[in-house]
Simulated scan of single mutants.
Amino acid sequence: MTPTAGLGFKPQHFSDAMASPAVGLWFEVHAENYMVDGGPRLAMLEELRRDRPLSLHGVGLSLGNAAEPDRDHLAALKRLVDRFEPALVSEHLAWSRFEGRSFPDLLPLPRTNEVLARLSANIGQVQDALGREILIENPTHYLPLSQHRWSETSFLRELARRSGCKLLIDVNNVAVGANNIGFDAASWLLDIPAKLVGEIHLAGHSHDAGGTLLIDSHDEPVSELVWSLYEDFIGRIGARPTLIERDGNVPSFDELLRERDRAQAVLDGGLRLAA
């Protein structure tokens, strides 16, 4: 995919999305919202992909499970990939299933050798089933876990080496985690090799009632802190496909497009730097 900026697609913005003249605009959707046999959602996606690149972002494969990826879920994802031929396919470094039950959250994992081996195997199985590379998104952190045996960035690097996947770096997740458990966000990003980054996410966050904990809520504009981290990151690694995520308090398409255009301006600078 050309390293331009895109938006998370919302059905209420379909007409605006189809009419937008923005050069390089692309759209990302949560794959699970389109695992249906027919209807208006799939029809809208068919229309979109005629003019714009698509990305599928999964939230339900539960790659950190002790078990292999759910066969039915993986088969449904493959049908979507085969039908819409997205430019990018991504998932989360998390788990959300246990003994046949699904949980409405992306739950954290201890960075141990056992978990690393299981994740690598599960990602490999998904890539084999889809016949393509996928991207893995770094998680958000709210509490420290005592079982870690790897730093997060070294864990991500080793996961990519073993599985052959690339990384989706969510800069907001880095900023939120840095605040909540106490690490340096800029240093974290410096420790990610450029060659492993296939996509970037930018989103907004909110505070808890006490004002100290940051929450990866996706219901606010991208913060100035995240914009600053993103600009430095692109300045180092060069332009990468970048998505503006907004899942709550969704504003008008024009307002989202202004955030998208700001990301595109950063990418344009990264492209000039690379040239």
Rank of each mutant, 00 (worst) to 15 (best):
A275Y: 08
R79H: 06
L167G: 01
V171H: 08
L42F: 05
A66Q: 09
P139N: 15
A275S: 13
W95Q: 03
H207W: 15
H148G: 03
I134D: 01
D247N: 09
S223I: 09
E199M: 09
W188K: 01
E47C: 12
R71Y: 06
A129F: 11
L25K: 12
F27R: 03
T140M: 01
F233E: 00
L106Y: 03
F84K: 03
A75C: 05
D219E: 14
R262D: 05
P110C: 10
E231H: 13
H13F: 14
G177W: 01
L56S: 06
H207I: 07
R83H: 12
R246D: 07
A186Y: 00
Q147W: 06
I200E: 02
D219R: 02
V29P: 01
A265T: 12
P11M: 05
L119I: 10
R236C: 10
E220V: 01
L273C: 09
A121Y: 05
T2Q: 14
I134V: 10
E85V: 09
L145M: 15
T212Y: 07
N65F: 02
E91G: 08
S151F: 12
I192Q: 14
L189E: 08
D184M: 07
L80G: 00
S228C: 13
I181M: 05
N180C: 02
G8L: 03
V197T: 15
D254I: 14
L196F: 13
V176D: 00
S217P: 05
L88T: 06
I136F: 04
L156R: 02
A19L: 14
A117K: 15
V23L: 13
S55K: 04
L107F: 13
S206N: 15
V36D: 10
V174H: 10
F103S: 07
L256H: 04
E99V: 04
E152R: 09
T4M: 00
G177R: 00
S120D: 05
I123P: 03
R41F: 12
R83Y: 08
L168A: 11
L271C: 12
R71N: 06
T140K: 00
L93E: 06
H141G: 03
A209Q: 15
F233Y: 06
L106P: 00
L130C: 10
L93D: 01
M1G: 06
R149D: 09
R83Q: 14
H13W: 13
V171N: 08
E91I: 08
F183C: 00
L116Q: 06
L45A: 13
T153E: 14
E133N: 12
E199D: 06
F183I: 00
D219C: 07
D128T: 11
E99Q: 13
E224M: 11
R97W: 02
V29A: 02
S228G: 14
D82E: 09
R41A: 12
R260E: 14
L214V: 07
N173A: 13
P251Y: 11
H92Y: 02
T242F: 05
H207G: 08
L273K: 15
E245F: 10
N65H: 01
A263L: 04
D170F: 06
L189N: 05
S187G: 10
D170P: 01
G38D: 14
E137I: 07
A31K: 04
